[in-house]
Design a protein around this nucleic acid. Structure first.
Lengths: 150, 150
DNA sequence: CTACGACCTAAACCTGACTTTAGGTCAAGG
DNA sequence: CCTTGACCTAAAGTCAGGTTTAGGTCGTAG
């Protein structure tokens, strides 16, 4: 008589590869909302496997948990998310991803230029900021990649 | 009669955009090795500007400080690094970078596939790991990007 | 019904990368 | 000489993202 009331946290952990403690932590951060069985134990939907996969992937891309939460909050609350629901998030996600790829490529190309021309100390080298150019741009750390995802 | 004995930490901070405390922290982590003036204050070479730029850039790529240190330790100890010295590191660096770009592109393409075909729950969807595929691969979190830089 | 593993909470602990604080010292201009 | 801002150290604090620990409960197989 198993399997009628949803997945246990242990099953979810085994299937996602996450630690049980991590899943509980994610719940605390509002990334996932299991219900409780009469004994107070967490029970998860199969759709939560996808939610957690999404969390793991997003982390790989450098999203913080609050950012991921904001993305997940776009999923419908009442019903199980459909492919279309996920796709809506995916589109947004993909735009950030494209931007990151471009930034990386730009940096790589700068790096190529530097190596190719030996210009590491020239003013036009934008990667190894030569001696001083950064000081022209005012205070605070420079964010070399257009960061702030989402 | 300034400027005969190297840069102060404040000058370095102003020119890199880093906080003074961060530069001291980097010294503690072995990323930079200033000498001391007779009064015990740190004095830096102009080449250290480049070192710190390198640190900042490497961090953008997700390298940890120990990893960055390992890269910087390849620079010559006795003399000021030449363009060729930096280029040697740059080459290594670029390889990691290329690998990351490829991984991102692969993930993005998977994402495209998912969105395009609505396969979010099909076994062949590698991005939103469908319900269960991860459990086939044994224990522990999955590292979806071939990570471990350096 | 009893054992035992899986589950529960709360709170403490951990690492990385810093910043802040507290209590002084240094150095350059007037 | 004196002041004032920049500098010094050591230690504590911060934040994210978890893990570990302690002490107790649940649920299922035998």
């Amino acid at each position: 008589m198993k399997h009628k009331d949803g997945l246990t946290i242990g099953e979810l952990a085994a299937r996602t590869g996450l630690a049980v403690s991590a899943i509980r932590y994610y719940e605390a951060q509002g990334l996932i909302r299991p219900w409780r069985n009469p004994g107070g134990q967490r029970r998860f939907q199969r759709a939560d496997l996808r939610r957690l996969s999404f969390v793991m992937i997003s982390q790989q891309f450098g999203f913080s948990l609050p950012e991921i939460r904001a993305l997940l909050d776009q999923l419908p609350g009442g019903r199980t998310p459909t492919a279309a629901d996920w796709a809506a998030i995916g589109t947004e996600f993909r735009q950030v991803l494209d931007a990151r790829i471009q930034t990386l490529q730009k940096l790589r190309d700068n790096l190529d230029g530097c190596i190719g021309c030996g210009c590491l100390s020239l003013p036009r080298c934008q990667l190894f900021n030569p001696d001083d150019q950064a000081s022209r741009k005012g205070k605070g750390p420079r964010y070399l990649m257009g960061d702030s995802p989402v």
